[in-house]
């Protein structure tokens, strides 16, 4: 899959602490999905793998499914179970 551009990925809470960063750029090719980008992030930060089963995703600030298409230039947030209030 040839990269066509990049997606900005945002990390929060324990994910940001474990990765040592809150933000990274991930190359994406045609037809990439939320799940594909997530997998690239886990390749780079294997220490985040245990969090995957409970993750939610937000694409450009809207909750999105794992199979949603991701266009270059968009922002994907990995959202652990929330605990505000």
């Amino acid at each position: 899959m040839r990269a066509m551009g990049t997606v900005t990925v945002l990390l929060f809470a324990s994910l940001a602490e474990r990765a040592g960063t809150r933000r990274l750029e991930v190359p994406v090719g045609a037809g990439a999905t939320v799940g594909d980008v997530r997998d690239r992030v886990i390749e780079r930060f294997p220490q985040l793998a245990p969090a995957v089963p409970t993750l939610m995703y937000a694409l450009d600030e809207e909750y999105a499914r794992e199979d949603a298409p991701v266009a270059p230039g968009s922002t994907l947030a990995l959202i652990p179970p929330v605990s505000g209030g």
Partner: peptide, 24 residues
């Protein structure tokens, strides 16, 4: 509490933990 992307970390005298649901 259900859907706003905010997370809390509890800090105790002897450790700390991000609260991200019982699974985590």
């Amino acid at each position: 509490k259900k859907r706003v992307p905010v997370w809390k970390k509890e800090v105790w005298a002897d450790g700390e933990e991000w609260i991200e649901g019982p699974e985590s």
